[in-house]
Nucleic acid binder design. Sequence first.
DNA 1: AAAATAAACTTGTACGTACAAGTTGAGTTT
DNA 2: AAACTCAACTTGTACGTACAAGTTTATTTT
Lengths: 242, 242
Amino acid sequence: MESSTQYQLLYHRLKKEILADVYPIGSILPSENDLCFAANLSRSTVRQALSQLETEGYITKLKGKGSIVKSKSRSLNLLSFHGFSAMVDKTKMSTLSVQEPMFMPWPEEFPFELSELEKGAGCIHFARVRAVERRPVMYELTFVPNLNLPRFVRQFKLNQSFFEFLAKEYQLEITGMEQQIWAVAANSLHTQHLQVESNTPLLKINRKYHSNRSHLNLYSTLYCNTEKYALGNTSGILNQSI
Amino acid sequence: MESSTQYQLLYHRLKKEILADVYPIGSILPSENDLCFAANLSRSTVRQALSQLETEGYITKLKGKGSIVKSKSRSLNLLSFHGFSAMVDKTKMSTLSVQEPMFMPWPEEFPFELSELEKGAGCIHFARVRAVERRPVMYELTFVPNLNLPRFVRQFKLNQSFFEFLAKEYQLEITGMEQQIWAVAANSLHTQHLQVESNTPLLKINRKYHSNRSHLNLYSTLYCNTEKYALGNTSGILNQSI
DNA sequence: AAAATAAACTTGTACGTACAAGTTGAGTTT
DNA sequence: AAACTCAACTTGTACGTACAAGTTTATTTT
C-alpha cells in the first residue's frame, strides 16, 4: 500500500478492518472525534477517509448516529451473481478449470480496442466455469496483456480470486470497468461448459477492467446461465434516465 | 429544488449547466477560486459541490489543470442502451405507447416485495416500447405506487422522460436502484412489441428505483432486444470480485 | 409511572488558513 | 531555435474553528 497521505492511510486501515470483521456488518465505527483522537488527525481528514468509504459502499453515515458498516451487498457496482439469498457463502460455489493460464497471441476478433503496447505484449489467457451447488452458472474467458506480470502463468491457480491474486502479487488494483451486455442463444461451446440445451438464452458480458497501472487493462467475456440465478446489482446514485 | 444548503445549490446549478451545454464535454469548469468568488463561497464548500459532481461522473478533476466535463458515458451506473456510437442523439430514438397510464391493483405476482403502504395505495401502470432508428429495442413496463402523485395519469405523456417528469412535477429525485438481470426467450408478448421471432434471446431486467421520498419506490420490468444494440455501463469503482 | 426537558453525544455544513504539487506560458538564457 | 527558469495559475492535502441538526440518555418535572 503505497498511499502516502493521511486520509488514504486511514481509509485503507478502516477498509481492511471492515473486511476482517473487526467492525462487522451493522456495527458502528468509532465516532469521527474518536478517530481524530486515536490517529491524531483533524476531523476534516477523518471525514475525507470516511467519505471515501461511503462512496465506495462500505459504510452508511447517519446524522446524529454514526457510520454504520454496510451489508455485503455493497460489493459491486458491477453485476454479481445473486441467488435467493444463498450464494453469499462461498462453500456452495466451486470453480472448474476449462483452460489453465497460458501465453497466446491476441484473438483475431477482440471485442475491445487494444493499445499498441498491449498488442505487442501478447496475452495471457485462461478460462473457467463457476458453479453454484454443482450447477454451472458462468463460463468466463479472461485475457490479460503480458505486461510485467512475472510468474503469472505458473502461480495463478484458477480456484482462487483473480483480483485478490493480482492485488497480493503485483499490487494491482482494479479501479473501474466498462461492460456491454447481450442476450444470446447457447451454441455448442456453451452447451458443453454450462450444461444447457442448445439455444438456451444466456447473458453475454464483455468487460474491460481498468487498473491502477495506467496502461494495463484486463479483459473478460462471461456467459451466464440465468435460469436459476439472476445477476443483480445495487447502485447508490444515478443521473439520467434512458 | 428544495436543497437548502450552499454546496447543493451550487452542485445543482453546475449540473444543470453541464446538461444544458453551458459547459460542453471536454471543457473546463471555472476554477475553484473563480467559483468561490462568483458565488461568494469558501473553497471547501465549492470543493464539496465539485466532489459530488465527480463521484456522480459529471466531471473529472485533474491536479494543476481543472475540472473537466466528462463525456456522456458518465450517465449511468445502471445500464443504458449503447449503440456503436450513435444513440447519443435523441433524434434517432422514438417511443411507442403500449399502455397509457392507468390505475390498477398491483399484479398478483410482483417481482419485488411491497410495503403495506404501497400495497394499500394501489398502483399506476404504463408500458411503452423504445425504438432506435424505427427498430424496437426495449419494452418497458412501469409500476408506481399511487402515493401523492396528483394528476399523474392525466399529465404524464409516454414520449417524455419519466424521471424528468417526476422531478419537475413532484420534486421527486431518484437516489438509487436495485436490479436483477436474466436472459429469457421471447414469448408471444415480446414478439409482438419487439418485432422479434419467438424464442429470440432477450434481456429481462427488473428494477426497483429508490427516491428521495423514503416510502416511494418505482418499479419497472424491461425486455431488451440486444441483436443490434448492446446494453452497457461504466463504473468508477468497484470493490470485490465475483 | 409518564411526560417533558436538558445534556451529551453523533454527523452535517460552512467558514478560514497554509502549504504541497502538478500545469502552463512568458521570459530569459544558452 | 532550443533549453531552461520562474511566476502564476490549477487542484490536493491538512490543519483549525464554529455552529446546525439529528439521536440518545439521563434528569427533572408533572
